[in-house]
């Protein structure tokens, strides 16, 4: 592998009291690829997301983000969630967290927040720069809505959307922050087969545009068809990594999912 990884996680460990939720985990994502993180319930996948996005402070380990174009890598250790997003990691949530009393368009506009600057002065006096920026926010947000196929719902309140559309909006909102790497936490959870299919389509489309994606997912069909590489976790540890094909045949993975084989 010649490419520089965008996200590089080394030895990530997280303890909750006496429980070790993550045990010295290594993971990397290279630009343009879709990487899946799978594992049984309670394996520590969401904890992993929470650690790298700054919601939890990991006990040990290093998280680096490398912007493309030969720039120096940035350590994400100890940054607050909003700073992590600013550096280029954006995420969606397992249990949808939209701004329900804001319109769909506004939800996406919030995603533009960290890439824009207008403040009190600009807001009150509506300077030329502010007006221009406001236009840009509007335009790019709308463009993102078009991309995910939700432009028609722009003025709807977010909580009036059907379930599948809410998940899409979460992705749109995260994309609005111009992430280097997009983190999707179970994007297909609770979706019906049609919704899942159109989600798969959307993720592929985003990926084709060069967006690197790291996703947690339980839907194996989706994972196998989308991912370039897969990491498997169990009890906070990485038990396997490789291409979908390799993972499918890995005995450790089969054991983790189907349980210990009974030896006679």
């Amino acid at each position: 592998m010649t490419k520089q990884p965008i996200l590089d996680v080394r030895g990530l460990t997280m303890d909750f009291g006496g429980i070790r939720a993550l045990n010295s985990l290594d993971l990397d994502v290279t630009s343009g690829e879709i990487v899946a993180l799978i594992g049984p319930n309670g394996a520590g996948k969401t904890t992993f997301f929470n650690c790298i996005t700054g919601i939890y402070t990991p006990t040990e380990g290093n998280i680096w983000l490398t912007p493309p174009g030969g720039k120096k890598k940035i350590s994400l250790n100890g940054l607050k969630p909003n700073q992590v997003t600013e550096k280029g990691l954006a995420r969606t949530f397992q249990n949808i967290r939209l701004f329900s009393k804001m319109t769909v368009l506004e939800n996406v506009m919030i995603g533009r927040h960290c890439r824009t600057k207008a403040f009190i002065f600009g807001a009150i006096f509506r300077t030329k720069a502010t007006l221009q920026e406001e236009q840009d926010i509007l335009q790019s947000s709308y463009a993102i809505l078009e991309k995910v196929g939700m432009a028609d719902f722009a003025d709807e309140f977010a909580d009036n959307l059907p379930y599948g559309a809410q998940r899409r909006l979460e992705i749109a909102r995260a994309l609005a922050t111009e992430p280097l790497l997009l983190l999707l936490d179970e994007p297909a959870a609770g979706m019906n087969p049609q919704e899942t299919q159109s989600l798969e389509h959307l993720i592929k489309q985003i990926s084709m545009e060069g967006q690197a994606i790291l996703l947690i997912e339980h839907d194996m069909k989706l994972v196998m068809s989308l991912s370039d590489r897969i990491f498997v976790m169990d009890y906070g540890k990485k038990i396997a990594q490789g291409t979908p094909l390799e993972i499918r045949e890995n005995p450790a993975v089969i054991k983790a999912y189907l349980g210990e084989e009974v030896d006679a």
Partner: peptide, 27 residues
């Protein structure tokens, strides 16, 4: 004017969901 600005939007978003707000890069 404040209400209709980038700042105003951030306030309302903050009122709705703090965690999501931070994940969107709002301090």
């Amino acid at each position: 004017r404040l209400q209709d600005s980038r700042l105003g939007r951030a306030w309302i978003a903050l009122r709705e969901d703090e965690v999501a707000c931070q994940a969107m890069g709002i301090d």
